[in-house]
Nucleic acid binder design. Structure first.
Length: 571
DNA sequence: GATGCCTGCCC
DNA sequence: ATTCTGC
DNA sequence: GCAGAATGGGCAGGCATC
């Protein structure tokens, strides 16, 4: 697999992540979610910009098909996250399609009734910060996992209620990705202003330091230590910090920035030492300690498993490796299908981690984690990867991922790649227009790409055009850029879970239960071949049709692999 | 009401 | 999305 | 080579300000 072309391209796969929110059916006021953001200015930037610019240019010049190949693990599918190659014991748990969802329902009710009580925790915030501080200095992921799970076990011993707010602090989020209204709405500027006022330093001093050090958390910590405090407020607790963060997120409207600053100042004043550092970093949504969702999830599974064991009888019973691995797999699978820590954790606590697959399963109304592809350099690499397997290729459309849900009550929701509820962005879409038989179709989940569509010319428009669409309070009249959905998968139909079926079967379902409406709802163009020339031709064709390349997927088999072959830009 | 900084979220 | 890093 | 974490470019929209 020589990939040849792009001279400079060194790409490595990585992957990203997660997902974010979904909106709960009941609407709640509020807004988005927190997330990582852009960052600051650092020295690295210049260099990188240049490099990438060069690469792009080179690629264009070469005009060839550069291929990137990617393998993706389907996230929603059973093995989504990292499936360890062979060694996995995979005791496949049979998943019964219908499981008792009662539990989940209960949890959801509890959630929406919400408030606070179940977010309370008396764990000192300083203990969490101590753990963060330790983790920041460690690069070994196994070691990080050990530290996290030890800490989780420790706080569970006091009360298992501590686990949820603590987990959210660890992943630096305020709630499920799909819950709207949880963005902090804070940036480095507002934080600098707050720090400057709290610590009695001038804005320009702070800015200078920031340029120098590049970490507001560090600055806040340093500044506070210098500042003589008249008296110490009482120490912060995890519950308090978490509730305050949510309060900040829910503050909006006129003078909201002042109100947010007030809330921050109060906490900052109560901070001691490293607490200030991590509080500020949390507010920036840049924890930067080399710990993120995947690692927390693994740590949680270990902690919950050990906690379980301890309850039973002997405290320090050793858990066999294969048990641990299968627990991790269960929790990952559950989380892919129901990306909500409260639901997953509470299910574990109530029924045990090994029974998760009976209680935490996908359902219309909750966005599952999407299957992601990994980029590949060359078609050859894809062929190698799939050698011996039957695979199929589809156009990779240049749009926005759209997970379309039809619920029992007839309502529709559209979720983004990160689980954000985008329904109101597409008022012109009515999924029922594309369903073959409305009498027999009660609910379903489709996986599609929403692409900007030129109705007059009947062709695809670039992503950039799609991104100019209005995003909030969109009325039918506001829609100037039309959208066509290109469906490529179905994950659930009438409560039947399809994610463990083969793609071949899922495609059969898809074409059976939906119908094409040209310019509004179409299927992704596909081909099934392992002939290199045909593939190359298909790739060229996709680029000529304004697509970005190909998605290559395994057609059968339980452990789907997906690759993406990148085409080259059309002028 | 217009302008501009800032943030969040898509790729 | 791409780039970087540790294992 | 892989999985996980961190970071980039471009857009609409919120809030502060004039």
């Amino acid at each position: 697999m020589s990939s040849s072309l792009p001279s400079s391209a060194g790409k490595k796969p990585k992957q990203a992540t997660l997902a974010r929110f979904f909106t709960s059916m009941k609407n709640k006021p509020t807004e988005g979610t927190p997330s990582p953001k852009k960052s600051s200015k650092h020295m690295l930037e210049d260099r990188m910009d240049n490099v990438s610019g060069e690469e792009e240019y080179a690629t264009k010049k070469l005009k060839q098909t550069a291929v990137t190949h990617t393998v993706a693990a389907p996230s929603s599918m059973g093995s989504n996250f990292s499936s360890i190659p062979s060694s996995a014991p995979s005791s496949g748990v049979a998943d019964s399609p219908q499981q008792s969802q009662r539990l989940v329902g209960e949890v959801e009710d509890a959630l929406s009734s919400n408030n606070n009580d179940h977010y309370s925790s008396n764990i000192p915030y300083s203990e969490v910060c101590e753990v963060f501080n330790k983790i920041e200095a460690i690069s070994s992921r196994l070691e990080i996992i050990r530290i996290c799970s030890d800490f989780f076990i420790k706080i569970m011993k006091q009360s298992s209620k501590n686990l949820i707010p603590t987990t959210y602090l660890f992943i630096n989020r305020l709630g499920p990705d799909y819950e709207a209204g949880l963005e902090l709405g804070l940036g480095e500027n507002l934080l600098m202003k707050t720090i400057s006022e709290t610590c009695g330093k001038s804005m320009s001093q702070i800015k200078l330091k920031y340029k120098d050090i590049g970490d507001l958390g560090e600055i806040a910590m340093g500044a506070r230590n210098v500042q003589p405090t008249m008296f110490k407020p009482k120490p912060l607790t995890v519950g308090e910090v978490f509730k305050n963060l949510r309060a900040i997120a829910k503050t909006q409207g006129k003078d909201s920035q002042l109100k947010k600053m007030k809330l921050i100042k109060r906490m900052l004043t109560a901070c001691k030492g490293i607490e200030a550092k991590f509080l500020i970093r949390s507010l920036e949504s840049k924890l930067r300690i080399g710990l993120a969702e995947k690692t927390v999830l693994i740590s949680l599974s270990k902690a919950l498993l050990l906690h379980d064991e301890n309850r039973e009888d002997s405290p320090d019973k050793d858990v066999p490796m294969d048990v641990l691995e299968s627990a991790q797999q269960k929790i990952r699978d559950a989380f892919c299908q129901v990306p909500n820590y409260e639901i997953v954790i509470n299910s574990c606590l109530e029924h045990g981690i090994m029974n998760l697959d009976k209680y935490c399963t996908l359902r219309p109304g909750i966005p599952l984690k999407p299957m992601l592809a990994k980029p590949t350099k060359a078609i050859n690499e894809v062929l190698d990867r799939f050698q011996g397997e039957t695979f199929t290729s589809e156009y990779k459309y240049d749009g926005e991922r759209a997970q379309v849900h039809l619920l029992n009550d007839g309502t529709m929701r559209i979720y983004s790649r990160n689980g954000e509820n985008m329904t109101e962005r597409y008022p012109e879409i009515n999924i029922t227009d594309f369903i073959q038989d409305l009498d027999t179709t009660k609910n379903l989940i489709l996986d599609c790409e929403a692409v900007a569509w030129d109705k007059d010319q009947g062709k695809i428009l670039p992503f950039q055009v799609l991104s100019t669409r209005k995003r909030k309070d969109v009325e039918l009249n506001d829609v100037k850029v039309k959208v066509c959905l290109f469906a490529f998968d179905i994950l659930c139909y009438n409560d039947e879970r399809l994610i463990n079926k083969s793609l071949k079967e899922r495609r059969e379902y898809l074409t059976k239960v939906t119908k094409v409406v040209p310019g509004e709802f179409q299927y992704a163009t596909q081909i099934t071949t392992n002939n290199l020339d045909e593939l190359q031709k298909f790739l060229d064709e996709s680029v000529n049709h304004s697509c970005e390349g190909l998605m290559v997927k395994m057609l059968e088999g339980p452990d789907p692999i997906m690759n993406q072959v990148k085409g080259q830009e059309t002028g």
